[in-house]
Each structure stands twice: as C-alpha cells, then as structure tokens.
C-alpha cells in the first residue's frame, strides 16, 4: 500500500516547529532511507506515520485514506532501543504474542531461540530483544514498516542477519519501508532512494 504524508508539521507545545510542510509519498515495495542531523525530528516523524503522535498540521494517508485510529495500526514502527519498547514485567512469550502469534518459520528466520521465551526482558541482550520487536511488528495486517535506527545497537553479524530476514519478508509481502539510520553504508546497501529531512522541510 502507498503511504502519503501531506503537509505535516509538528511541534511540542511552546517549542519551535520541529518540521513543517513535509510531503512524502512511498510506494509499495519501495525502501526509502530517511536522513537528518540528530534532533531534526526524524523520530517524531516516524511516530506520526505510525500513529503514536498526532501531527499538529497535515495528515497521513494510506492508499489515499486516513488511517483508522482503532485496532491494529497498519504502519508498524520498530524503535532504536528495544529495551524501552517491551514491557519489563512481561516474559518474552507474552511480549512476542501481544499483537499476533508469529509462526515458527518467522521465528527461525529471525533466529529467535525457544529458550528465550521464558526469559524476562532484562535477561536478554539488545540484539536478542530487537528480534522480538521485529517479529512482533510483522503481523499479517502490517502494510508498512518503519525501522528507526533498528540495528544501530547491534553487532555487524546480527545486523546483517536481521536485515536479511526483514528484507525477505518486506519483498515477499511487497511492503514499503522507511529506514532511518545514520549509517551511510547501511542506507546505501538497503535503500532505493534517500530522503533528506532538512531538504524537504521548513523549520519556521
């Protein structure tokens, strides 16, 4: 499905605009890099697209329609810090199955081991936790994926493993994806094109 952002603007109350007049369109199957210096509102933009924040101005459309705010959100966001994105008081199997029940083949693809299911989040490393967050976000109703510094905290081998798995699923389901990363080399490797946030926004 095509995702469109129309004239988005965002600010926290009483603070200057983070960005304004942001327009972007991403086609299904397209993998797009999003770049900007830190503090320019990349994460805020991702949160708006995924429905975690409401834009102060403008709207987000999926296939030309506004997104229903009830139920499963078709745009799923994977955060930079998995340890902050899981409930510390839930064991991993509960975390994993919160939205849907991922099948064994997905778990294998992501390298999620059975023993991890009975652990608490603080007993797993960042790379292990992030695999759960990826699996959790890839439900059948997910139409669009946003990876906000998804593998920034991970070592190169784990990073390559997770990306190969995600790319396989994204291609198979013809999903669109936004990749936010500071790693130039990774963005070059993954993305069809790159959007520079400070070139498409005005901060007035």
């Amino acid at each position: 499905m095509k995702i469109e952002a129309k004239n988005l603007g965002f600010r926290y109350d009483g603070y200057p605009w983070l960005f304004r007049n942001v327009d972007l369109t991403i086609q299904p199957g397209e993998i797009v890099g999003l770049k900007a210096p830190s503090g320019y509102g990349k994460t805020s933009l991702c949160k708006i697209l995924a429905g975690y924040e409401k834009p102060v101005e403008g709207e987000v459309l999926l296939n030309g329609e506004p997104i229903n705010s009830k139920g499963f959100h078709p745009v799923q966001l994977i955060f930079q810090h998995p340890e902050k994105a899981v409930n510390p008081r839930w064991k991993m199997d509960k975390v994993l199955n919160e939205g849907w029940r991922p099948d064994q083949s997905l778990l294998d693809l992501l390298g999620i081991e059975k023993e991890w299911m009975t652990r608490w989040p603080n007993e797993l490393s960042g790379g292990e936790l992030q695999r759960f967050c990826v699996a959790r976000a890839l439900g059948p109703d997910t139409k669009f994926l946003i990876a906000d510094e998804m593998t920034t905290m991970l070592d190169a081998i784990t990073q390559a493993q997770i990306w190969h798995a995600v790319l396989e699923i994204v291609r198979e389901r013809n999903m669109g994806m936004i990749v936010v990363s500071h790693e130039e080399k990774l963005v070059q490797r993954l993305c069809h094109r790159v959007i520079n946030l400070d070139e498409i926004t005005s901060r007035m």
Binding site: E113, E128, A156, I157, A160, K185
Partner: peptide, 21 residues
C-alpha cells in the same frame, strides 16, 4: 573475519546461528 565481512560495506554476509547462551 566473519564480523568484518558482515559489515554493509564489506559484503553484508551474515553467518548463521547466534552466540551461545
């Protein structure tokens, strides 16, 4: 070597498996 060759600029080749618990 595996770590080096898994970097996006050097092949992006993952080796299977994960670090032992």
């Amino acid at each position: 070597k595996a770590l080096w060759n898994a970097l996006p600029q050097n092949g992006f080749t993952p080796i299977p498996g994960s670090q032992p618990q």
